[in-house]
Write a protein that binds this DNA or RNA. Structure first.
Lengths: 344, 344
DNA sequence: CTGAAAGCGCTTACAG
DNA sequence: CTGAAAGCGCTTACAG
């Protein structure tokens, strides 16, 4: 056997055909399960394919079918434990449906715009963009090539992209109403990034509900969805001459930082201060925090996103759709929502 | 314009060639930056390509070059905040080098084995498997097709796969030695999954060092790397007639659960109990936990993994390599390592 | 029921 | 400096 072997020993349908004594087309048909093939040939080809470890080259198939069965997933902000959960749920859901995921990370709309041409070069059949927007130019580009887009926890009206989001505004309202009902009056909001619709919408719902109930003013601190921002913002709030009785935070990590700041200042939670977050990440239910929060319905949001995306991949004539899925207020120990507060 | 337009408007090199009045090969060369092309044609072609929004089809290119520039990344255990960080670092590092990431999730060796044929069908140039192993059969399969594999925080000797891992055994030793030096004697280990080399090696190093210093026995509880497992295991340990003075946990999440259990039982950390973790996830430095832990050097581990993988992609004759990178003991508030404990 | 052939959109020797 | 042609590994009309 002085025969030269190529370095890479990937087996092709031609080799299978050779050994099976059939044409290459027949091999292709056997693996595709074409019903026209005779049982005998099909079994023989399959057996030989198996013994050689043959699997059709998905790249070659994609070129001819013009379908890669790949979804591009643009993720962001892995420092917030909510998003790894989203990422994992997306990949598992898509895999179970036979799809592959090409992963990218991008923090801002600009990153997304820079990245998208690279993603599109790989001919992804669809695009999921988590928690980041895109320019209308790039949105048009996607529409132009017929690549459907779903925005997750973001929306860009008239972009041609579908969007699935937690009802952040409604969530903010629920928090405001629960706090008011429990007698809290002096309230504060610690924001996330100002360019994030999640934070903006949560704040908007919160403020609207306060106004509707006659509460005209409240405190506000900027933030960026991080523990440190929550810690520092709460420090500033709690050192005020008239500190807030309750703080609503743009997300759970921020709320956790706020709780630690309160403890550092010997402000008791919930006796002296109520803290409410948004997301319901695993740490929210850790005993040290026991955080009251608005739970984002991850499973429903993922399910809706995938349904909308695959629907438009199958039928490109479908219109873009926006879905807002309500979150649920999860009552734990960081706020006394069922009784009037101490001085209420 | 009653002309029919195809649904998908992806532009090809042929269209660019047509408009530029050159051959399709010339378009390909212009975009590849072939130096033989005249400046004039190159610029003209590039300008037309730009105006049409043309980008070469990476799938077609891959078919001919037999290189996809895609790395398959098999991730696991997103519930442990350490791994999203790893995932993000990998994608960013690979992207900056011009590589794409095809993402899969798998919890066990069996999952990996089931998944790998799908990954390989996409002709990935290399494979990174995070925190899970693979059968030697699949490892052989990868070697056979010339697809290099790097295992991250796992190793499979003689598999042909490279491996990069934190020096878990050394980390366990450091913890044991620091505790003994500080005077702790009655010690415990809360394990992770028994099939995880990370947990096994940490425990081994811990036990070895104890034995070498004459400590012959210690307590042990099973676990699974989760908060709940840490909480429950610590509950059992602390209710013992002679509870441990210090608990070393297989990872940070487990340690955080253990701290919360201690607090629930009014056992003070670190006064009555030292708790030490492994990973140094962000939550380890949250004020509520202030966890002493062994930091895994993520950046160095990622850098080494990518270097080993790409090295073997460029030169398949390179041998598989195992690298163990030392972790650093980060001293925070959950253990008194610089003084003898109360009753020491 | 099966095969020969075309073609997906590129890259890259081979010519000139 | 540029073009015509082959070919990557498939799928899928088109024949028979």
């Amino acid at each position: 056997m002085a025969e030269r072997r190529s370095v890479d020993k990937r087996v092709t349908s031609h080799e299978v055909a050779l050994r099976a004594g059939v044409s290459q087309s027949t091999v292709s048909r056997a693996l595709a399960g074409d019903p026209r093939l005779s049982e005998a040939t099909r079994l023989r080809v399959l057996e030989i394919a198996r013994s050689l470890g043959y699997k059709p080259n998905a790249i070659a198939r994609s070129l001819i079918t013009k379908r890669t069965n790949i979804v591009g997933l643009v993720a962001s902000n892995m420092a917030n434990p909510f998003y790894p959960l989203v990422l994992e749920a997306f990949t598992q859901h898509l895999h179970s449906l036979g799809w592959r995921v090409l992963l990218f990370t991008a923090g801002s709309r600009e990153d997304v715009d820079d990245l998208l041409p690279e993603v599109l070069a790989y001919q992804v059949d669809g695009l999921i963009i988590v928690s980041a927007a895109m320019s209308s130019r790039m949105a048009r580009e996607c529409v132009g090539r017929g690549t459907p887009v779903v925005l997750f926890n973001r929306y860009v009206p008239d972009s041609g992209a579908s969007a699935v989001s937690c009802d952040n505004r409604g969530g903010g309202r629920k928090v405001a109403e629960a706090l008011l009902r429990a007698g809290y009056r002096r309230l504060a909001y610690i924001a996330g990034r100002e360019d994030a619709s999640t934070s903006v919408d949560r704040e908007r719902g919160f403020g609207e509900a306060l106004l509707e109930h006659g509460v005209k003013t409240w405190l506000r601190e900027p933030g960026n969805f991080s523990y440190e921002a929550g810690f520092n913002a709460a420090m500033r709030l709690l050192r005020l001459d008239e500190p807030p009785e309750a703080i609503f935070c743009a997300n759970d990590i921020t709320a956790i930082g706020a709780i630690d700041a309160a403890r550092k200042l010997k402000v008791r939670v919930p006796e002296d201060l109520a803290v409410i977050g948004f997301d319901d990440i695993p740490a929210a239910s850790w005993a040290a925090y026991n955080l009251t929060t608005v739970r984002q319905p991850i499973e429903r949001m993922i399910e809706a996103s995938v349904r909308l995306l695959l629907g438009r991949i199958e039928d490109p004539s479908l219109a873009a759709v926006n879905e807002f899925i309500p979150g649920e207020l999860v009552r734990r120990g960081s706020a006394r929502l069922d009784v009037a507060p101490k001085e209420g």
